[in-house]
Design a protein around this nucleic acid. Structure first.
Lengths: 120, 120
DNA sequence: ACACTCCATCGACGTTTGTCAATATTCGGA
DNA sequence: TCCGAATATTGACAAACGTCGATGGAGTGT
């Protein structure tokens, strides 16, 4: 398999903080990062994020998510709550329905933290 | 700041593939991604990766990692094994010492998968 | 050969996690 | 006002996880 060239955008605005490995990450930041990664580190939750992102208007209600992931309604609600608390999704209720939507920069910010680490 | 081009070595294992949310991620890919994220989703393991990356020559032996993370030697070895099995670290033994090093593109690849997701 | 150091594995433990059924809550319609 | 539908919460349980102490194996130096 060949090699390709990939454009790398220099982070003029480096997410928020300092590069991840210029110095050793401190325990507090490690804890924070781990929490977010943990929220994403589940196949069901990854699929939920993916489905929501790919949905009409970028949002989906719980009832639309149950069948695709093949789990019970309480379990789906549970996963959505975890994703919300980690800052990846937002919920807006309209009538009896709860619509979940991606938080715009959330995944990108997480991605940048890893990327900076990866660059060394 | 300008943009540069970074050579990316295509791993013989596919793993690169299609954007994460152009279509709904399938269960198999979600499982794979989740495994890697799970390996990183622990504060101790994040610190280990960070310390190894920031170490002299990009590598560190177990004895140098124990004190910084403040855990027992077996626990540190356990975490390092998990990071190895997930493809983030490699081990090379020299004498009695075991030196761990970052796998060059591993974090970047993971980062890209999230980034693609983030772009929508 | 011996002792010592570095590291991995094993066995055990308390905690966290993912899942479900049952129940509660909230809202819209008849 | 009562009923049904969409979600959230609770309680329970098995599986996975993070940690440790004890032990084992492999190198090094004496």
């Amino acid at each position: 398999m060949s090699t390709t060239l990939l454009p790398v955008i220099q982070p003029e605005a480096v997410a928020c903080c300092t590069p991840l490995t210029s110095e050793t990450i401190d325990a507090e930041r490690a804890d924070d990062l781990a929490k977010k990664l943990k929220a994403l580190a589940d196949p069901t939750r990854l699929r939920l994020v993916s489905i929501v992102a790919a949905s009409e208007g970028g949002e989906a209600c719980v009832c639309d998510l149950i069948e695709p992931v093949g789990l019970s309604q309480p379990t789906v609600s549970h996963h959505l709550k975890i994703l919300m608390e980690a800052g990846f999704l937002t919920r807006s209720k309209r009538g009896t329905w709860a619509y979940y939507k991606l938080v715009p920069g959330a995944l990108g910010q997480l991605s940048q933290l890893l990327d900076v680490t990866a660059s060394r």
